[in-house]
Nucleic acid binder design. Sequence first.
DNA 1: ATCGGTATAATTGTATACAGGGAAACAATT
DNA 2: AATTGTTTCCCTGTATACAATTATACCGAT
Lengths: 229, 229
Amino acid sequence: MPNYDLKQEVTDKYSLRGRVFTKIREDILSGKYKEGDELREIAIGEELGVSRTPVREAFRQLELEGLIQIIPNKGAYVTGITIKDVRDIYMIRSKLEGICASLACEHITEQQLEEMEENIYLAKFHAEKGHFDQMSELDSRFHELLYEACDSKMLEHLLKDFHQYVRRVRKKTLSTTERSLASNAEHQSIMEAIKANDAEAAERLATVHINNAYENMLKNGLKEAYSNE
Amino acid sequence: MPNYDLKQEVTDKYSLRGRVFTKIREDILSGKYKEGDELREIAIGEELGVSRTPVREAFRQLELEGLIQIIPNKGAYVTGITIKDVRDIYMIRSKLEGICASLACEHITEQQLEEMEENIYLAKFHAEKGHFDQMSELDSRFHELLYEACDSKMLEHLLKDFHQYVRRVRKKTLSTTERSLASNAEHQSIMEAIKANDAEAAERLATVHINNAYENMLKNGLKEAYSNE
DNA sequence: ATCGGTATAATTGTATACAGGGAAACAATT
DNA sequence: AATTGTTTCCCTGTATACAATTATACCGAT
């Protein structure tokens, strides 16, 4: 009795295997599968209504991402994202988003800049109203835009992954009006530096933005996001 | 955390799928498969003497690494590492190896430090003798040691991948006695900063080391490594 | 000759079959 | 009772079979 019958949506643009991968990934990142859990190909296949083949292919990818560990002839075990990993990710991100913002000065397109401005304008509205779900969405989109604007396949790929990894804790971070407004103001500074083609400032501001986000997270929600495990 | 690592790495080398993955990866990184090439599952399977299943699993991993692009129902196309990617990688590495060296100050073990010292001592000998193959090996090992010493799964994983990606061009970089000696001297400075637990210096020196390596590469071998494509 | 359409081939996507390894249960020995 | 050896079963690893999709070749109409 599959809980999720993904099979019926197979005609959509995304492949079955892609859905399986995404689903397991989310289940790990959301905490459904916890560190040390053993994932069985057949069990997960049945749960998702597919055979072992797409599950195995998804496992290989998850292994490469470091979210699970596959021991040959034995099984797949969840590694997950620990609190220490979150710290490392933010440390790495603060540097890389700096580079990214710096590169964006040269490579951002008119269209991307416009969407950024719109994003910030809209986010201010939602932040003031306390619409945290929308804020979270807009925040994600702002960073995605930044990653795309740097015009580096490598950086974009890395930063998008990291952004995914910390999704769960990130949402907690933006759950106060105060931090939402501050975060959005920081976005605006970064955007303005990019618009002014000031690479040095953009780098510095983006680095500080990530550090601030992490600081705020420490005060507010990091432990809690992991407490219910 | 259970200590599965060693066992997995060892067995993985001898597992079919692991070998297939490694082989295709090397064939892309070495330039055998060029950008835009289409990879057919059956053809590669026959070449390696295996069926499509392990090939497909390897493809999924290569896709996640960004080395190939899979268009659903159509085919797998080589993306490879371009000269621009090399630039981005060195830019990223310079920051991340800085963080890594900084963290290593706290987390390096006696044993790792000893191996580093031995590595540097031996490298000096081979550099002076112009044994560039051995130099290349020792250089790789030094950086691997550094990555392991930072005690961050995330950083180690990232840096090891990047190191792999630029293997082909890196070898060119060390092909002069002058640069080999300079590089080894930089290694020594980094090691000494770590030994002295001077995180700030370690970070700065490691960053500079990567920047120097890239500068040297620009003068000496980057274009050439790509010219025969 | 060129365009469009249909049939056919080739390739990918998924499911299943089969072989082998490892763990757990049980038996046997001490 | 503890330990070792054996059996059995389950799960993974790989190959193959089948389905779906895309590319190709051929044909007729214009």
